[in-house]
Design a binder for these strands. Structure first.
Lengths: 87, 87
DNA sequence: TAGATATTTAGACAATTATCTAAATTATAT
DNA sequence: ATATAATTTAGATAATTGTCTAAATATCTA
C-alpha cells in the first residue's frame, strides 16, 4: 500500500470519522450510517476507499456486512508516517 | 492547526515531494521548481497550501523567497497522527 | 528611474471526488 | 417463490482542487 493511497484515504473527514467509530467497535454499514448525514451509497463509497487503502476490512455476516479496522496496516502506516516526518 | 488541514495538505504527491526536498535543504521557490513539471504559479499554490497547514515557513531574502520546513509543527503532527492511529 | 529577475495573485478551465437517485445484488424469512 | 432487509453498483451532477496564462508585486542593478 503506497503512502499516497493511504493519505488520500485519510484526507477526508467523513472517512476519518468512520475510522474513529471503528476504533470503538466493529460496525455494519447501516450502523455506521446512523452517525452521518449522507446517504448509504455515499457512505458505501467511503468504505470502499478505506478498503482500497487497506485501512479497513469487511466481512459478511448474514445480511449485514461488518466493517472493522485493519490493525496491522494501522501500525505499518504509523511507521511510514513516522519516517516521513523524521527529518 | 487541525488534523484536517494537515492531512489535506499532505494528500497531494507534489506537496509531499516539496517537503522531501525541503528536508535536505531550504530552497527558494524557483529552485524547487526545477524538480517539477508544473508551472511556477502552480508550485506557488502548493507552497501556499503547505504554509496554511503550517508545514513550511517562508522568508524573503532579496529577490528570492526561501522556504523551509516548520520542524516544530512536524513534531506536533507526528504526535497527532500517532494518537489517531493508536487504537 | 528603467529594466531584469523572482514570485505571487487573479481568473479561467480541466480533472478529480463526493454526493445523489435508481437499480442491482445478496441473504433471510414467510 | 416472493417479499423484505442490507448493501453495493451505475450513472449523473455538483463541489473541490490542480493547473494554466496573463498580469501584478517586490527586489535588485545599471
Amino acid at each position: 500500500m503506497t503512502l499516497n493511497i493511504t493519505l488520500r484515504a485519510l484526507s477526508d473527514p467523513t472517512r476519518r470519522k468512520i475510522l474513529e467509530l471503528l476504533k470503538k467497535q466493529d460496525l455494519a454499514a447501516g450502523e455506521l450510517g446512523k452517525d452521518f448525514d449522507i446517504t448509504l451509497p455515499s457512505l458505501s463509497h467511503h468504505l470502499s476507499v478505506l478498503k482500497q487503502a487497506n485501512l479497513v476490512v469487511s466481512q459478511r455476516q448474514g445480511q449485514e456486512i461488518i466493517y472493522s479496522l485493519n490493525l496491522s496496516v494501522f501500525e505499518e502506516i504509523a511507521e511510514k508516517l513516522y519516517k516521513f516526518f523524521k527529518k
